[in-house]
Structures are given as structure tokens and as C-alpha cells.
Write a protein that binds this DNA or RNA. Structure first.
Lengths: 124, 124
DNA sequence: CAGCATCCCTTCCGATACTG
DNA sequence: CAGTATCGGAAGGGATGCTG
């Protein structure tokens, strides 16, 4: 498992920030959560098309421990768990949004095809 | 070596953008280049305090191949190589700046110490 | 000065099977 | 439904030594 943010002393603020949102799935996860407000585990699994249960759980736990998302468990049968952004997590949305705009522009310029859809949103 | 951007079909724009600036050193490298305009190999090695020559070269090559930085070789003895951001690379500066501001604010709030200095700039 | 080459280890990640 | 457990491979990264 990845080293926790708190356990590695950052070199500087850029280093620190990049480690909090780095990794293969964190960006998309935050972005999808922003777009849907609340998502259940299974919905996330379908949104992040190429993710395995293991990586989804792992990434969710890291983001939760890091204070960027909130996890709400409903003790029902069948079980139900909802995820949403925390206030701190929401602060990152403008950044991801701009980065996504830039990415879209680049992909159009270079004629790069993508697997999902243009605005990264999956409607289930 | 890391897979090239062009060789992996992105899921969506967020995925694509994150892969272009992901990695342990890319963010800081771009940020330092922005702050100094032009930096030589040795200057970069001193700026990125914890980097090894191998990783510095590797990261520089990836960014160059990806069109975010420009590499200028002066055929002198001793040799001299300068690096600077390309136009596309400069487009990323506002994002990194935003992310850095957020990181600084978070570190202050959580009282997280850092190894380098506050604004991530090393004066050699 | 600005690197390349080699070895090796750790971390990340995927595949598959199973559970309260 | 929302996960866990285990295995194994691939990628990322460090240490050291050498070179045009």
C-alpha cells in the first residue's frame, strides 16, 4: 500500500500537493464524485471503467484517510455505502476542472481518441 | 521506463491530463523551470533536492518527448545543456500554481513541516 | 558538465477467487 | 452489495560506477 501523506515529509508545497492527488485513479475519482455529488461503491466501479475492486477500495481508503472524501455506511441489507467529497476535497475541483479543460483541448489538437466520453461522465 | 503518453489510449480528459503531469518529480520540475525561466542540468539537480541523476534525466526526457519542455544543447567543452518550458508547458503553470497555493494553505493548517522552503524555490 | 549503464529492490497494480 | 485475500507481474525508483 502507498505511504500515507502524513508519514513522508514533503520537500515543498508542490511536492506535497502532487502526492495528495497522485496515483492512477485519484483524479478521476474526485472528478466523478464532484459531478454526481454522491456515489455508491457500485456506481463508482461502473464509472471508473478500468478499475478493479481492489484498486477502487484502496484508492477510496487513501482519499478518505487523507480527508478528501467522506464515507457513509448504511447498516442495511443489502449493505449500502455512499461516498462524497469533503469540503477540502471540493477545494480541488477547480484545479481538476481546469486541468480537464486543458486535457480536452490538447486531445482535440492532437487528434487523440479516448475510450470514455468527452466530459468524462458516465451515465449509469 | 514509463509508457509514453501517446502509446496509451486515455479513458477521458482527466485521465489524460493526469498522466501528462503525473510522476514523482514532474510537477516540481515544471514549477522550478517556470520560476527560473532557464535552468541547466546541474542547477536542476540542485533544485530538486532528492533527485538522482538517473531520475532527473529520465523525467526530463519524458517531459521533452511530451512537448512540455525544450532542451538546448551547446556543443562546448565543458558541455552545457539548458532546459526551458515550451508554450504548451507554460499553459500548465497556472494549474501548478493553484495546486501549490492549496498545498501551502493545507500545510499551514495542519502544521506540516517541509524540507525545502516555503515557495519551493531554491536559490543556488 | 551532463549524462549513460547496470543491478536490484520496492511499490503499484491487475487477475482471480472468496465473504459478511 | 460492498467489499477481502492472495498471488504475481510490471513499473518506478535508488545506488553505484563509468564516459564523451
Amino acid at each position: 500500500m502507498q505511504a500515507k501523506i502524513q508519514d513522508v515529509q514533503p520537500i515543498c508545497a508542490v511536492d506535497y500537493a502532487f502526492r495528495r492527488i497522485g496515483g492512477k485513479y485519484k483524479g478521476r475519482l474526485l472528478w466523478y464524485l464532484h459531478n454526481h455529488q454522491v456515489l455508491r461503491y457500485g456506481e463508482l466501479r461502473r464509472s471508473i471503467v478500468d478499475i478493479t475492486p481492489k484498486m477502487l477500495t484502496q484508492t477510496l481508503r487513501e482519499l478518505e484517510e487523507d480527508g478528501l472524501i467522506h464515507r457513509e455506511v448504511y447498516h442495511e441489507v443489502p449493505p449500502k455505502v455512499e461516498y462524497r467529497l469533503t469540503t477540502v476535497g471540493q477545494e480541488l475541483v477547480p484545479f481538476i476542472e481546469h486541468l480537464r479543460d486543458w486535457g480536452m483541448q490538447q486531445m482535440r489538437k492532437e487528434n487523440i481518441p479516448m475510450i470514455g466520453d468527452t466530459n468524462c461522465i458516465t451515465n449509469d
